[in-house]
């Protein structure tokens, strides 16, 4: 995929940079914008951001790798984030993730996000989603699912397969 920043996005980012007394502070917002646009943050976007904000690519790359929320690879259409922090762990989130992985034929032993070969699903563990009272909690793309059961998990998979 050749990388290009559409003029509307560039204009939006230029405007964004003006919100900060120091240009470099806009880095995170740039990365969010790129992830929204491309679905992940490609290396070219890191270089582009660095150039735009007067930084070195490594400075921006540090940010990208620090926050697991930033993805360096494209993810599946249905992105399943299972909370692994305490309440959810006690309420069975490990079993829930195992279930997703098994159903999708993914390796649950790897600690990084797993994507199916057909590009339809990505499953990953994330830290606390701030809904501990309704554990276990899963985010499917931008939707929060609470008190998730195996039945509900299967429903997510079924609708994602369509």
């Amino acid at each position: 995929m050749s990388f290009s920043v559409p003029p509307t996005l560039e204009a939006e980012l230029d405007e964004l940079a003006t919100h900060y007394p120091q240009k470099r502070s806009a880095s995170l917002m740039f990365l969010h914008a790129f992830q929204e646009h491309f679905g992940h943050v490609p290396r070219e976007a890191v270089e582009w951001t660095a150039r735009k904000l007067g930084l070195q690519p490594i400075n921006v790359y540090e940010l990208v790798t620090f926050y697991p929320m930033f993805r360096q690879q494209p993810v599946g259409k249905t992105h399943i984030k299972v909370c692994r922090t305490l309440s959810c762990a006690l309420a069975g989130s490990a079993e829930l993730r195992e279930h997703f992985c098994q159903k999708l034929g993914l390796d649950s032993h790897k600690h990084t996000p797993q994507t199916t070969a057909d590009g339809k699903f990505t499953v990953e563990f994330v830290e606390c989603l701030a809904s501990c009272g309704t554990a276990p909690v899963v985010m499917v793309n931008d939707d929060l699912l609470e008190k998730v059961t195996v039945t509900e998990a299967d429903r997510v998979l079924a609708s994602g397969k369509k």
Partner: peptide, 21 residues
């Protein structure tokens, strides 16, 4: 400004933007 720390926690790693950079 060629070097940085990538990743987080026990996976922290010194790196340059590209090999050889």
């Amino acid at each position: 400004d060629a070097l940085g720390i990538v990743n987080r926690g026990s996976y922290n790693t010194i790196a340059a933007w590209k090999d050889g950079a």
